[in-house]
Design a binder for these strands. Structure first.
Lengths: 210, 210
DNA sequence: ACTGAAGATTGACACGCATCAACGCCTCCG
DNA sequence: CGGAGGCGTTGATGCGTGTCAATCTTCAGT
């Protein structure tokens, strides 16, 4: 039994796919804001980010939004139980995303289990940030996380808007903006562009996360 | 952990056995507050709650605590990546917990993957509560969740302290207590005991969660 | 049953962040 | 080139929840 058993049988997307036994996973282009799947959709495949970034979120009835996770190049998302998506997924910026066909080899199954567990650990760690840290600590944790996931370089990109960052951290865009300004004023970060950050004092940032 | 729980032979399983919550492993007793595993411990097995409740949490350097999840009877926990526990797990009240040997059979791994994915969805939904709902909504969501996971009866138990509830919802015990009092004053719930609740107006509670 | 400690409740007050509002900057497109 | 609209920044103000403190309740141990 493989991970594929958890998902509904994969319907061929077109005649070509059905005819090809081992299709190459070519990324599909998504422009910023484009929907990848919606809450309630059938969950019959996984996705791997080739470039760009994906936001996975949920909405309350009155429109409040919580982004549960961002997925960056190389990362896999789309796991669900019971064959239905419980969340929305959209490209946070222009992105390339490859659909992964559910394969039945043990190796692929193990790999997907590992990806799912990594998402679980990440979600639980995110809970600590959102549930118990203040605005400054949340932004610091977010910046450190983004840097680490992009090779841990001093300079890195924020492939999403301030609004996305706020909805990821449980803050408003105004608070996000104020904290960025404060960190910049203190020389902890430099903003090379609206979406490009340089960690001037990584030690300070890391200390803020505790 | 008793030797019996560690080395109890796995009964051969068929499809129906896997679906049934009753495990072949014998549960070990844990008193309230007893540690099941700690951050940094080797993660070499899973656990299934027989009775009682488990809290899985993480700490900040200054002692702030975030409970990522509660596990109730029948539920499986202990998933990790890279063979190390990233969290602490303790009995939230007197509990019986069975260790599950990591087996490589396809059937067991399928079952575990499903449990892991269920934990993932639950954690992501919990993020919405903690990140975007106010104190009243959080408590309402918590009560509805607890009721549903205990058979969706009007009356149910809270197998954890107010402090645990606060650390699960990202609130202080004072706020938790105040919201309970408010719901009781409005006739939405009745407190049959300090840890026993009756949903007098389930519709109101569900509406609060949106 | 008595006693002490831990947990829970309630009140007063403070503060961090949300809200509301104004403005600047950039991009798109006529 | 100019206007419009989206996004980001900054300021003023209010509210919800944290903090501190006092009291009450529950429960375990003697």
């Amino acid at each position: 039994m493989s991970a594929a058993a958890l998902f509904a049988p994969l319907a061929p997307r077109n005649r070509e796919d059905a005819a090809r036994p081992a299709p190459a996973e070519l990324p599909t282009m998504y422009s910023a804001g484009a929907e990848i799947y919606a809450q309630g959709d059938r969950a019959d495949r996984l996705y791997r980010v080739a470039f760009g970034a994906v936001r996975v979120y949920r909405l309350l009835a009155d429109g409040r939004r919580q982004i549960c996770a961002f997925y960056l190049p190389g990362e896999v998302f789309g796991f669900e139980v019971d064959g239905r998506h419980h969340f929305f997924a959209e490209a946070a910026c222009a992105s390339g995303i490859a659909a992964i066909r559910q394969v039945s080899s043990d190796e692929a199954s193990r790999e997907h289990l590992e990806s799912a567990l990594r998402s679980l650990v990440r979600a639980q760690e995110h809970l600590l940030v959102v549930g118990r840290q203040n605005a400054l600590e949340r932004i610091a944790a977010f910046l450190v996380d983004m840097a680490e996931r992009q090779g841990d370089l001093a300079q890195f990109d924020l492939p999403m808007s301030r609004s996305d960052i706020g909805d990821y951290l449980g803050l408003t865009i105004e608070t996000v903006s104020r904290v960025f300004s404060k960190l910049r004023a203190q020389g902890v970060i430099r903003l090379l562009g609206i979406r490009s950050v340089e960690m001037a004092k990584p030690g300070v940032l890391r200390a803020l996360c505790e």
